[in-house]
């Protein structure tokens, strides 16, 4: 456990010093800060637009950070040969992989917490409120984004055990896109009795294998006050469990591949 934690901490410390990640983070925070100034662009309700825009910025920035952070996680260690010194110690490969993943998730969490802090600051100023209940509602959305991005990071770590970073970038991005935008479509196709059985099976397979990232997009409840989720806490708990299941499966797959891989 000490080894996993040490590797995670080192990964975190390295990640928060990576300039490319800091630039992406700064751009994200910059958009959050200037978002109130964009109200003139929309005739709709100012606060609705602002919520939609800022939460969208957090989601997009976090997704880019999650992918950029994790696609190089293992290849960098091999290229720089740091992995040789680490694996020559009493460290098992699964410990190394889990440590790297946890470090990446911690770094992701830290960066998302900074963006959420900026988001809350913007709303405190815009709405002139310090009401914790109101602000708490806003925090739930980034929390679910964090769960979503942790899952995305696991997808990228899985691919990083057998493809190059560039291929991984597009693969992980593709899985995120399909899982966010098209998963519901695949679900509908897989349940439709009137289509070709082959297409139906393929759609069912994609729906079953690719995690449904859409489950974690709960921003509508924050953006539109009229909308809500029944048994909200239970839903969040179930979705966290859903993500943890996929993360565990992806890491198990990654460990199986990485354990046999020549580094």
């Amino acid at each position: 456990m000490t080894a996993i934690w040490s590797i995670a901490r080192t990964t975190l410390n390295e990640a928060i010093r990576r300039r490319v990640l800091l630039v992406i983070l700064l751009i994200g925070i910059l958009f959050l800060v200037i978002a109130p100034g964009l109200e003139a662009l929309s005739p709709r309700q100012e606060i609705t637009v602002l919520k939609s825009l800022t939460l969208g910025v957090i989601q997009l920035t976090s997704a880019v950070i999650a992918i950029v952070l994790t696609v190089y996680l293992i290849p960098n260690e091999i290229e720089r040969r740091t992995i040789y010194t680490i694996l020559s110690k009493p460290v098992l490969r699964w410990q190394f992989l889990v440590g790297k993943y946890l470090g990446a998730v911690l770094a992701l969490g830290l960066m998302m917490a900074l963006m959420t802090g900026a988001l809350l600051l913007v709303f405190m100023i815009m709405q002139d409120t310090r009401d914790l209940a109101t602000l708490g509602e806003m925090v739930r959305v980034p929390f679910m984004f964090f769960v979503q991005m942790s899952l995305l990071a696991a997808v990228a770590v899985f691919f990083s055990t057998f493809v190059s970073p560039i291929v991984n970038f597009f693969l992980a991005g593709g899985v995120y896109l399909v899982g966010t935008v098209f998963n519901s479509l695949f679900q509908v196709l897989s349940e439709n009795k009137d289509i070709n059985p082959l297409v139906k099976s393929a759609a069912g397979l994609v729906h079953a294998v690719i995690p449904n990232f859409q489950y974690f997009n709960v921003q509508n409840t924050a953006i539109n006050p009229g909308q809500g989720i029944q048994s909200e806490s239970l839903y969040y708990l179930q979705m966290t469990g859903y993500a943890l299941f996929y993360i565990a499966a992806l890491l198990a797959g990654a460990i199986l591949i990485f354990d046999r891989r020549e580094v």
Partner: peptide, 8 residues
Amino acid sequence: QFYASLFG
């Protein structure tokens, strides 16, 4: 310290 921690 990092490498020492890998030995616990």
